[in-house]
Design a protein around this nucleic acid. Structure first.
Length: 527
RNA sequence: GAGCCUGUAGCUCAGUGGUAGAGCAUUCGACUUUUAAUCGAAUGGCCGUGGGUUCGACCCCCACCGGGCUCACCA
């Protein structure tokens, strides 16, 4: 057995190897990576995942081969508008344009020349926000400009073969009418899904009949007068552009199979394909834009830095993963751990941070404190401002601030919001008993009277601590500990809490008084 | 009907051929005029079942059982 020090490559490198092998076989010296976007429009978390993952494979390919490559973000904006989306204005107007290519439908938002253009701009803005390097491509442009003409004529010449490939996958009804060619109706502009009566390969046209008017038409397949049905479209594009790599979700497994068969019929080897598992919501259901379940990119970025989303997408793309709020802290801490490990990593290519940052960590990447710990801390001290957290952080890392630890500063920002939205609402505040009520009133009055100055201590925190302690003593608490339990449970809504003097100092005396008064008022309601 | 994923500590999950891991939870300890963050330690696993390959299997192959998802005349 030969020594296999097989530095088992990370999945982007494994994929890159496959791409390199394909190029070698074809004698190509440049690789084309593609990601596709359906017509239903707005970019979502799956879009991010697909582009991020494809970009990682591309980067690995560059590292591996030194060859140039391109990433084409291809928008299916010539697809017909099938139904009016729920989340747009001017629905009534859109109804009148159902069936037309998206680039022929007016923009319901009124900002662009067409709905398709609107979506295309949203997509590009979205990708640019993350700094992805890509070239945008519009299906409508490619069809109209004639860039697909040769390939379309090629498809026409293989019309029957393609029909035979698709037909077995169809139900009886569609089986009778199926054609990969969808003519655009010359009068209504609608993408027609009709039987093709006859194919004229020589003239590059198809003959069909309008089912409503029984009018017969002859339509060129070139120049944007017709488009292709989805699976044939995909295959034609692979063939025309000679795409080397494209990944897709497992819901498209059958499409990949059929499109691969079609592209082979056209005489081209299909690209290297990767099927990734879908993202599931908290109940294990597929995340879909229309259902609005799961988690949006915006939501993720509200609660954690974008690098953590990259971490989530990096890990095991071929495994189904739950994509819900509660996975955010872990993804963030996994990322932080990866950053910490990267500088001394023996196999940097296996480290997610290497991929997320394109091979080189930015300055000030990483954090000396984990996100989970920050969340814990935020909860304990009921943090609602960054300064409160920094106060405690500085006890741990003297002198730390947002400038010396910029990434930590971002974590602090997110921790406060995460705590506010997910942790704080679940807190259980109990009403104070009679003794407790008296002591709390005493506390509020003492704070107002600035009594703390009478107590020993080098800092306000210590003086406040002594004041709190003294108040506990002058009220009949059985064990003194129960006074502190009261503070935590009544004021902070948690079983245990921080040293209270320090808490008041950070939280602010005025606000602590308000906190006490709120708690007392709550007690009255409960009683 | 076809396909894909999955079964590892109480929970959530890492771990693709070489002595079973992390986080949380639990227990104990340290620090503290009560605490908490934190730090240290401990407890805890026939790695779904049965075969096979191998010097060696959580890992590779086969079968079975359990859990789940996706697709089936839209893209």
């Amino acid at each position: 057995m030969s020594e296999q020090i097989s530095t088992q490559p990370s999945w982007p490198f494994r994929e890159a190897e496959r791409v390199a092998a394909r190029l070698k076989q074809k004698g190509k010296t440049e690789a084309l990576f593609e990601t596709g976007y359906g017509p239903s429009g707005l970019p979502h978390i799956g879009t991010f995942g697909e582009v991020a993952r494809t970009s990682w494979v591309r980067k690995a390919f560059t590292d591996l081969t030194g060859l140039p490559s391109r990433l084409l973000a291809f928008s299916d904006d010539m697809d017909g508008l099938r139904k009016v989306p729920d989340n747009v204005p001017n629905k009534e107007m859109l109804k009148h344009h159902l069936g037309k290519p998206l680039t022929k439908v007016p923009d319901p938002f009124g900002k662009f020349d067409s709905f398709g253009e609107h979506n295309n701009n949203m997509l590009q803005d979205f990708l640019n926000e993350f700094g992805f390097e890509f070239e945008f491509a519009s299906s409508s442009d490619y069809y109209a400009s004639g860039r697909f003409d040769n390939a379309l004529l090629h498809v026409l010449a293989h019309h029957d073969a393609i029909v035979e490939i698709i037909r077995p996958s169809l139900g009886p009804e569609r089986r009778a009418s199926y054609s990969p060619i969808l003519p655009i109706h010359p009068r209504t502009g609608i993408v027609m899904q009709v039987p093709i009566d006859q194919v004229d390969v020589e003239h590059g046209t198809v003959f069909w009949t309008d089912p409503d008017t029984n009018t017969k038409f002859e339509t060129a397949v070139t120049g944007g007068a017709a488009k292709l049905q989805w699976k044939a479209d995909w295959a034609m594009r692979w063939h025309a552009l000679d795409v080397d790599y494209e990944m897709s979700g497992k819901d498209l497994i059958d499409s990949v199979k059929l499109s691969s068969a079609i592209v082979r019929a056209l005489g081209t080897e299909p690209p290297v394909c990767l099927t990734y598992e879908l993202f599931l919501d908290d109940k294990g259901q597929k995340i879909s834009k229309s259902k609005g379940n799961g988690l949006s990119v915006e939501q993720w970025l509200t609660y954690a830095p974008k690098e953590s989303l990259g971490q989530f997408m990096y890990h095991a793309p071929q495994r189904a993963k739950r994509l819900f709020f509660d996975v955010i802290p872990r993804a963030t801490d996994d990322y932080i751990a990866a950053v910490a490990a990267l500088p001394t990593a023996e196999k940097p290519h296996e480290n997610p941070a290497w991929h997320i940052h394109g091979g080189e960590l930015p300055e000030h990447a990483g954090s000396p404190i984990g996100f989970a710990m920050l969340l814990n801390l935020a909860s304990v001290i009921n943090a609602d401002s960054p300064e409160m957290l920094w106060g405690f952080i500085r006890a741990y890392i003297p002198g730390a601030n947002a400038e010396t630890y910029p990434f930590l500063a971002r974590l602090v920002h997110h921790a406060i919001i995460y705590n506010r939205d997910f942790v704080a609402p679940k807190k259980q505040f109990r009403a104070p008993g009679d003794v407790e009520r008296g002591a709390l009133l005493d506390l509020a009055e003492s704070l107002k009277a600035n009594e703390m100055v009478q107590y020993p201590g080098a800092t306000p925190a210590e003086q406040l601590q002594n004041l709190v302690y003294a108040i506990g003593k002058r009220h009949p608490f059985a064990p003194l500990k129960s006074w502190f339990d009261c503070l935590y449970q009544v004021l902070l809504g948690q079983v245990e809490g921080p040293r209270f003097g320090g808490f008041i100092a950070l939280y602010g005396i005025e606000r602590t008084i308000a906190l006490v008064e709120t708690a007392l008022a709550r007690g009255v309601e409960a009683a």
